[in-house]
Amino acid sequence: MCSHEPACPSFEDTDREAARVVSSHPEQGWSLLCNGVVLFDDTGELLPDGAVVAPHRPRVLAA
């Protein structure tokens, strides 16, 4: 799907969120990346194979 040089990470790679945005819909809270990943504002993801990645916000540790 990606035609960039160098190619964006595959949706199977751990750095898949580094792929370029091809369609942004901030009013709806999601963006489509060139590797087919739908990235949601809450950091959740929908992968092209139908798998769901739960939101993974950084946890704040108590001081």
Rank of each mutant, 00 (worst) to 15 (best):
P58Y: 02
T14E: 15
P9D: 10
P9S: 10
E12A: 12
A18R: 15
D41M: 06
P48V: 10
S10A: 15
D15K: 13
S10E: 15
S23K: 08
H56D: 09
E5K: 10
A18G: 08
H25E: 03
P26N: 01
M1K: 13
W30E: 07
H25I: 00
A19H: 08
P6F: 11
D15P: 01
T14F: 12
G44L: 02
G29S: 03
P58S: 06
G50M: 13
R59F: 07
C8A: 03
E12C: 05
G36W: 13
P9M: 12
R59I: 04
V22Q: 07
C8Y: 04
G44D: 07
R57Q: 10
V60Q: 02
D41G: 02
F11D: 13
P48R: 07
D15A: 06
G29P: 08
P55A: 12
N35C: 13
V60T: 06
G29N: 05
E27N: 07
D42P: 02
C2M: 01
P58I: 03
A63S: 09
V60K: 13
G36S: 10
A54D: 14
E27P: 00
A18D: 15
R20D: 04
A7L: 14
A51V: 11
P58C: 02
T14V: 14
A19I: 03
P48C: 10
R59S: 06
R16H: 13
C34H: 04
A63N: 01
V38F: 08
P55E: 03
L32S: 00
S24I: 00
A18E: 15
L46T: 10
F40D: 08
L39S: 11
M1R: 06
S31R: 09
H25K: 11
P9A: 12
E45F: 01
A19L: 05
D42A: 03
L61N: 01
